[in-house]
């Protein structure tokens, strides 16, 4: 269909302008009349209009969702900076008041020590690679004894209460079990999961309340990403826990699992 100068002729563009509400009313009336006499054009226009309604049906729900804190912060970074400063001041205040100890200051130190994170992620990657191919002894304690696994590893990590081992079943990963491993200054726990296709991911957790907040982010939704050969690692800090999840998969898929570990809709790993 080509645009013609004739007053009554219409162009394809105008049909789109009509459904997008970008046509003046007089012209819209002429087009409406045209459509009444041309059922074929009318059917096309109706189908296009239905596409728009369908799109809104699919995605308008997003508008009603609560805005995630990390996006609010990204929209006003100067306020986030103020918060960090306040925390630093609070850290000093604690020491000044009670002489409570150095950890508060270290915890508030704004410059993360990237080396610590890299080394931690490295250890998680190596531990993953070591037990990934194990057929007979992938874990020390099997998932059937999950409660014992939780109590045992938590006690050895020095946690006050047993941590809940994250449930990744909604992503298709069942818990295989876990084991204790030597980390830099003490034990770390490794929990292994496997999906129906035999793919394995491992969650590596250590407890170290005195470590500087090397990779602590405000809402713990920021991960540090590493790749070592085929193995991807996402590391983050959750309170006094250092966590890293390793798997031979793309970053995005691993990230989805990491969110699940963090408790987005699932049980949360947490030392209480």
């Amino acid at each position: 269909m080509t645009p013609i100068k004739d007053h009554n002729a219409l162009s394809e563009d105008e049909l789109h302008r009509l459904i997008d509400g970008r046509l003046d009313p007089a012209r819209a009336a002429i087009l409406a009349e045209h459509l009444r006499r041309n059922p074929e054009d009318a059917a096309r226009v109706e189908a296009w209009r239905a596409q728009g309604l369908g799109l809104h049906g699919l995605y308008d729900g997003v508008l009603a969702e609560e805005i995630p804190p990390r996006l609010r912060r990204a929209a006003r970074p100067w306020r986030a900076a103020g918060t960090a400063l306040a925390r630093l001041v609070a850290g000093f205040a604690l020491i000044a008041v009670g002489g409570v100890g150095g950890w508060a200051l270290r915890d508030a130190r704004p410059q993360p020590d990237a080396r610590i994170v890299v080394e931690f992620a490295e250890r998680a990657a190596v531990a993953h690679a070591v037990y990934l191919p194990e057929v007979r002894h992938p874990v020390e304690v099997v998932a059937a004894e999950a409660q014992h696994l939780s109590v045992w590893t938590s006690r050895r990590l020095g946690l006050a209460e047993p941590l809940r081992i994250p449930d990744l079943r909604s992503a298709g990963f069942d818990l295989v079990g876990g084991r204790l491993l030597p980390d830099a200054q003490g034990p770390a726990a490794q929990y292994m999961y496997q999906d129906g296709g035999g793919r394995r991911v491992t969650l590596y957790v250590k407890h170290d309340p005195t470590t500087p907040a090397a990779f602590q982010s405000d809402d713990q939704q920021k991960f540090d990403f590493y790749r070592r050969g085929d193995t991807s690692v996402l590391a983050w800090r959750d309170g006094a826990l250092g966590c890293a999840i390793a798997g031979n998969m793309e970053k995005l898929e691993l990230k989805r699992l990491a969110y699940m570990v963090l408790g987005y809709g699932q049980d949360k790993v947490k030392a209480r």
């Binding site: 995605y59 997003v62 508008l63 805005i67 996006l71 929209a75």
Partner: peptide, 9 residues
């Protein structure tokens, strides 16, 4: 900030 919901959608 006002644009966040639509950017998300």
């Amino acid at each position: 900030e006002e644009q966040i919901p639509r950017l998300r959608r």
